[in-house]
Nucleic acid binder design. Sequence first.
DNA 1: TCTCAGGTAGACGGATCCGTCTATCTACTA
DNA 2: TAGTAGATAGACGGATCCGTCTACCTGAGA
Lengths: 198, 198
Amino acid sequence: MTGATSKAGPRVGSKPSVARERILATASRLFYAVGIRAVGVDRVIAESQVARMTFFRHFPTKDDLVVAFLARRVELAEAELAQLRADAGDDWPRALLGWVADGVTTARGTEGFRGCEFINTAAEFSDPSHPVRAIAARHRAWIRDQMQEALVALGHPAPALTAQHLLMLRTAAVVAASLEGFDDDEGTFARTWWSLIA
Amino acid sequence: MTGATSKAGPRVGSKPSVARERILATASRLFYAVGIRAVGVDRVIAESQVARMTFFRHFPTKDDLVVAFLARRVELAEAELAQLRADAGDDWPRALLGWVADGVTTARGTEGFRGCEFINTAAEFSDPSHPVRAIAARHRAWIRDQMQEALVALGHPAPALTAQHLLMLRTAAVVAASLEGFDDDEGTFARTWWSLIA
DNA sequence: TCTCAGGTAGACGGATCCGTCTATCTACTA
DNA sequence: TAGTAGATAGACGGATCCGTCTACCTGAGA
């Protein structure tokens, strides 16, 4: 197991494969836009312009691809937030909380917006012990913890509970937006958001 | 088209078929517990103990069954609420609002709880013009309108906006509960709920 | 009694699913 | 220059998908 040259499959630490990236990009797009079970590997392969064997070399099963899809989203979010915290300086707590809120408001105007990939994916995997469920849970916990940290830094009297409330508010806004295109003309989402923090 | 005796299929107004009920019950159970796409008609047929032809006589396509599944849930909810309004007398506004809240709190403790069937199903149907999406949207709007009516009756200063908030709160609670088994030891959900109303 | 709607049992079929396999080509690098 | 990892094209297969079709049975109402 220790990094042995398996019969097939990419070596550990080998240079990032462009084919793999193409597959992952295509899958991410399709999975988000259409759904996991609604998209077969055949379609991913076709639209990735990749050979069948190449696909299965990088992702031995479809499940592996789904996991990679969500894991990539997690990576991106964590990198983005790390960058933001580095840039914001002393103001990072408000910047962080604003970033989470903006993630909703900007996304829901976007063409092809279809809610939260973690929530949608979890809905398609009923087994709570499935890896994708673990990733989704971990990611939500991560967001909550980040917000809690920020609230602590702001001297908020109830950081843990408020972080929980903020996550719920965000969840509700995303789901509502994906279901009925909730537009929030009044900016009530933003007002509620910041009133919970202040 | 006008009620003509089609080659097959049940007559309009014919007595409710027990076979049909069995199919619908089985499908409801499986669709909710496992997911729509994850459950094939073959499985529904097998577990319904029904002949293949019987199945397709009542539900010409799988989509018809999915629609019937959600439509039935809507019927049940509307009937339940009508009963409750009839029973509650003058106190119906608080009874109604309590009923909506209790729907969440009781359900999420239940064995096999897997969130909201409308939200989960909508997540599996990416086409916004699909009938099931319309049903889900209509049902959510109905809940919101009912709550708004109750708030008006209570003389609430901002019934429309508050009804929207309550629906979002409910959505968030259900989704959170299905994703991470959010237990709400503190009763914060209930407190937030009633504080929005008072 | 006869009719006919509703139910039964199971074969059938084309499509799509996920995954394996062979055989060949290419490009880097030791 | 020889070896090797990675990519390619496409056949293949068993499973499952959704839906159709034939042939027969049953029971209640006209």
